[in-house]
Structures are given as structure tokens and as C-alpha cells.
């Protein structure tokens, strides 16, 4: 692991809470590491395990899924389904050799800009400590041509 290793984190943020929370972190000028690449999704329940695997395959070091707090989901129950889904997937990926720390599901409300910034900071530190992924779900990144 070289000293200038910078982890890449893909963040799937729900449109209604977590994305607004990240927005707030920006408008209030709360600094957070630029290692996260944010993808806006309608709901944390929309995130298919396939999206996560695709992110890993394209070279992501970790994936963050952030959605509304339980009970606050815009679609009433999307985050509950997401919770069950990723609880299983996380254990399974660990079984195949992708550490549990590399997949996180967190609840961030629209007013929790600071929490979002803290999460990204925490995750970046944690993944930097873990270093590059050692498993085999990875291939050289090719630039897509339209």
C-alpha cells in the first residue's frame, strides 16, 4: 500500500433524506473528504445488490448506502426492506472475502449534514486503514464510449 493511497467510496444516497443531508453539509460548509462519489437514488430500498457489486467491480473501495431514518421513509417502508437486504448481503460478502467495513448502511436525515460529514470522514479513515481491496470482484476500469 502506497502512502498516497486514496480510497474511493461510492455513496448511494436517498433523494429525500440523505441526499438533502449531504446538500446541507455542502451549504453549511461542513468539510468532508472528497473520497466519496455520490449517486442519487429515489430510495435506499431501490439499491439493488447488483449496483453494489458493480461499484466494487469498477474499483470502489467501499460503498455507503444512506437513507431516511426508520419510520421517515418517503415511500413508507423502503428503508426497512433495505435494512434486511443489506444485513444479509454484508454477511455474504464478508464470507466471500470483502470485509464488512466496506459496506455500510446508515440513516441520515435532511437536517443531519454534520452526521453525513462525520460518516464520510469515518469511512474514509477506516477504508484507508484497510487498504485496497484484495478480493477478485475487480477489473481494470474502462472508459465507456457512447
Amino acid at each position: 500500500m502506497s502512502l498516497d493511497y486514496e480510497p474511493r467510496i461510492i455513496g448511494f444516497l436517498c433523494n429525500w433524506c440523505a441526499f438533502a443531508g449531504a446538500d446541507l453539509a455542502g451549504t453549511t460548509r461542513t468539510g468532508y473528504p472528497s473520497n466519496i462519489r455520490i449517486i442519487r437514488v429515489p430510495c435506499s430500498g431501490r439499491v439493488d445488490p447488483l449496483l453494489i457489486l458493480k461499484a466494487y467491480q469498477q474499483g470502489a473501495d467501499a460503498v455507503l448506502i444512506a437513507g431516511c431514518h426508520p419510520g421517515d421513509c418517503h415511500y413508507v417502508q423502503g428503508n426497512y426492506f433495505a435494512r434486511r437486504r443489506f444485513a444479509l448481503l454484508r454477511q455474504f460478502l464478508d464470507y466471500l472475502g470483502i470485509e464488512k467495513e466496506r459496506l455500510r448502511l446508515e440513516w441520515v436525515s435532511a437536517s443531519e449534514g454534520r452526521k453525513f460529514a462525520r460518516l464520510v470522514k469515518e469511512m474514509t479513515e477506516e477504508v484507508s486503514r484497510l487498504g485496497p481491496r484484495k478480493d477478485t470482484v475487480r477489473r481494470p476500469v474502462k472508459v465507456a464510449t457512447e
Binding site: L50, L88, F92, L96, V137
Partner: peptide
């Protein structure tokens, strides 16, 4: 491609679709 990353994604998705 018939390479390990693609094959691994296939197997994880296949297994996950059978979870429960």
C-alpha cells in the same frame, strides 16, 4: 467476459436471489 469478476458477480447475484 468469462473472467473471475463477472463470474463472481453472477454467483453472488444468483445466490442473493435465492436468499430466503
Amino acid at each position: 467476459p468469462i473472467q473471475v469478476p463477472e463470474k463472481q458477480i453472477f454467483h453472488v447475484i444468483r445466490a442473493f436471489h435465492l436468499a430466503g
